[in-house]
Simulated scan of single mutants.
Amino acid sequence: MIQSILHQLKKLGVHSLISNEAIILEILEDVTQLDLVNETIDHLNSCIKGTEFKKVLLVCPREYLNQLKLVGKQMGMKGERVIYQRSLETPLESAPLDYEIWSPTDENSISFLSEVMGRSVKVTKKFLKSMMVELPSQYQNMFTVYKINSEPIGVVLPHLEPGRDQEGRLFWIGIHPKHRGKGLGNHLHLIGLERLRADFKAKTYLGATEVENLPMRKTMQANGCVEDHRVLTLEYKT
Rank of each mutant, 00 (worst) to 15 (best):
I2P: 05
L6T: 02
H7A: 15
L9I: 04
S19Q: 11
S19H: 06
A22C: 08
L28R: 12
E29G: 04
E29P: 01
Q33R: 10
H43L: 14
Y64H: 15
Y64N: 15
N66K: 15
N66E: 15
L68K: 10
G72Y: 00
M77C: 13
G79W: 09
V82P: 06
L88D: 11
E89R: 14
P91D: 06
A95R: 11
P96M: 07
Y99F: 15
Y99S: 04
I101G: 00
E107G: 04
N108S: 13
S109E: 08
R119W: 14
R119S: 14
R119V: 08
F127E: 15
M131F: 01
P136R: 02
Y139N: 11
N141M: 03
M142H: 00
S150H: 09
P152V: 10
G154P: 04
D165Q: 14
I173R: 02
P177E: 06
L184Y: 06
L184H: 08
H189W: 01
F200V: 00
F200E: 13
T204F: 02
T204H: 02
T209P: 02
T209Q: 04
T209C: 14
E212P: 01
P215C: 11
K218G: 03
M220T: 00
N223S: 06
N223F: 00
H229E: 07
E235Y: 11
